[in-house]
């Protein structure tokens, strides 16, 4: 039934304290190949929890997540294999401070895909060229600005050639003047047809790049639709009041 979707989430629940707190409350969602899905909503609405559930950094209480036709929540499946195909970009970059930029990028392909150092470095340099950071290949993360770190985090995830990229508030920890350079990289990726799921507060990005916007509140998907439907013609009061606050 859901074999056509890249990711298919069904009735996902994430409860804390034995159900007293429902971070996710029966979320169902399909994501297709090549789609850019942007998740918005007030803080505490469950949007990050949903994103982090997609690669099981959060273990859902119940519900299923199908990825490329396989239920990744079922016990017998090796989640590490699926995570190789689901890149993730974090709010706080999470680069490995003890490794140079190029080693940050080549570690996983070398150890997990069994590629040679030569091949991975060649590919890493091409990726670095794409984000205009080729000259920083042998620098260490602490020598980079926040915007540079996040661009590196993106290409580190890309080095594994994932089928989908998950972004968890990728610009929230950045100084305002660095937000643009990261969003530009994300826009380029979207143009190239990369499937992306983005949790963000950048409404401009959502409107411009998103194929579909999902508005969440209190652990549920309240409305979803095209940017035009969400930003210009919504009749939903909760969405309206949220947008009034952030726009």
């Amino acid at each position: 039934m859901s074999a056509d979707h890249l990711i298919s989430v069904t009735k996902l629940n994430k409860h804390y304290n034995g159900g007293a707190i429902k971070a996710l409350n029966g979320v169902s969602l399909d994501i297709d190949k090549g789609e850019v899905v942007v998740i918005i909503g007030p803080s505490g609405s469950g949007k990050s929890t949903l994103l982090r559930s997609l690669n099981l950094l959060e273990i859902p209480t119940s519900g299923t997540i199908m990825f490329e036709g396989t239920d990744i929540t079922s016990k017998g499946n090796d989640i590490n294999k699926f995570r190789q195909k689901m890149g993730m970009v974090f709010q706080h970059f999470n680069l490995f401070p003890h490794l140079s930029i190029i080693d940050n990028m080549t570690l996983a392909p070398r150890k997990l895909l069994g590629m040679s150092r030569e091949d991975t470095e060649k590919e890493a340099l091409e990726l670095l060229d794409k984000v205009a950071l080729m000259d920083r290949a042998h620098a260490y993360p602490s020598q980079l600005s926040g915007g540079q770190k996040q661009r590196i985090a993106i290409v580190r995830a890309l080095a594994m050639k994932p089928d989908v990229l998950l972004f968890d508030e990728p610009t929230s920890a950045l100084d305002p003047e660095m937000v643009g350079e990261v969003l530009d990289v994300m826009k380029d990726l979207a143009k190239e047809g990369m499937t992306m799921v983005v949790v963000t507060h950048e409404m401009g990005f959502a409107r411009e790049v998103g194929d579909r916007i999902i508005f969440m509140d209190e652990g549920r998907i309240i409305v979803q639709g095209t940017p035009d439907e969400i930003f210009n013609q919504t009749g939903n009061d909760r969405l309206k009041s949220f947008l009034a606050k952030v726009l």
């Binding site: 590490n80 995570r83 490995f96 996983a108």
Partner: peptide, 22 residues
């Protein structure tokens, strides 16, 4: 920082590999 664990796991490393390499 726990983010280092998460970054390692999100790339597809298992728990032991994350410990050893990261």
């Amino acid at each position: 920082d726990n983010g280092q664990f998460e970054a390692g796991r999100s790339l597809g490393f298992n728990y032991a590999q994350t410990l050893i390499y990261i």
